[in-house]
Computed example of a mutant assay.
Amino acid sequence: MDLNTIRAVARPTTRDELPVWTADAAWLAGGTWLFSEPQTHLTRLIDLTDLKWPALSVSETGLSIAATCTVAQLDALSCPPEWTASPLINQCCRAFLASFKIWKTATVGGNICMSLPAGPMISLTAALEGVCMIWQAGGGERQIPVADFVTGDQRNVLAPGDLLRQIDIPLAVLKRRSAFRQISLTPVGRSAALLIGSLSSDGGLALTVTASTARPVQFSFAGVPAAKDLRDAILQRIPDGLYHTDVHGKPMWRKAMTLRLAEEIRGELQAVPRVTP
């Protein structure tokens, strides 16, 4: 869709060149949502392309994902064999259920900043204990876990003019054994519940609930809990009012699916993995 109210497009090449933020401006990365509907309040776009952030950086501390990294670039990442949790990357990318055109344009940062309950990049980076680096509008930086970045349906902690720079994934989490579960009302529908569990090196279970809830909800157990203990923890931590509702699923159905998928993950991670000779 053409945005016929836009009168100027800024193309900064460094942070120092970022223009002063105004209410009629918008960051432009992939633009798949921005150009999908009228944006009559906008008169200026700030194109992030010429900042030329490396899409993906692998180091001894983990993985850094630029906010401008596309879904296609992330899906194509060749992960070291010791990154046991790396299948989650491909699984969450495919939870988009989008065409190749969207994959090559939509960005990881855009999906996180859109902050929809079913945002699969939120699911992925929250479950991998990702930390957002934010360039603050007034200067300086701050860091916040992805699980805390999203505060509700299309709500997050960004102040006007703040810019998500990157998401950092710790190496230790990438080496965890993990389990993925996702369900939709239809075979190609938006995620109604997407849960990811992982086991730490000391046997602790981490569980991240997304899509069924308005914001990510995380659980941490010293070991793999009994079925009743896991169910009780979910019932206590997630009030009925936190379950999301739209045409893709009613709250009570999402609640039931959350409990079911959580138990499936618990069972999978509790089982001793087979070793291929």
Rank of each mutant, 00 (worst) to 15 (best):
residue 6 I to F: 01
residue 12 P to H: 05
residue 16 D to E: 11
residue 29 A to H: 08
residue 32 T to I: 11
residue 37 E to D: 14
residue 38 P to G: 06
residue 41 H to G: 12
residue 44 R to I: 07
residue 45 L to M: 11
residue 50 D to T: 10
residue 50 D to V: 04
residue 56 L to Y: 08
residue 59 S to K: 03
residue 59 S to L: 02
residue 73 Q to I: 02
residue 74 L to D: 04
residue 79 C to H: 07
residue 85 A to Q: 02
residue 87 P to M: 04
residue 93 C to I: 09
residue 97 L to Q: 11
residue 99 S to M: 07
residue 102 I to Y: 04
residue 104 K to H: 12
residue 111 N to S: 15
residue 112 I to T: 08
residue 113 C to I: 07
residue 115 S to P: 01
residue 115 S to M: 05
residue 116 L to V: 12
residue 116 L to T: 14
residue 117 P to Q: 06
residue 125 T to A: 08
residue 126 A to Y: 01
residue 126 A to S: 14
residue 135 W to P: 01
residue 135 W to I: 08
residue 136 Q to M: 12
residue 136 Q to P: 02
residue 141 E to Y: 09
residue 144 I to V: 15
residue 148 D to G: 02
residue 150 V to H: 01
residue 151 T to I: 05
residue 154 Q to K: 14
residue 154 Q to G: 00
residue 164 L to T: 01
residue 168 D to Y: 00
residue 175 K to D: 06
residue 176 R to A: 03
residue 185 L to Q: 14
residue 192 A to N: 09
residue 193 A to L: 01
residue 202 D to H: 11
residue 202 D to W: 02
residue 207 L to K: 03
residue 208 T to N: 09
residue 218 Q to V: 13
residue 220 S to I: 12
residue 233 A to C: 04
residue 245 T to I: 12
residue 254 R to K: 11
residue 274 R to A: 13
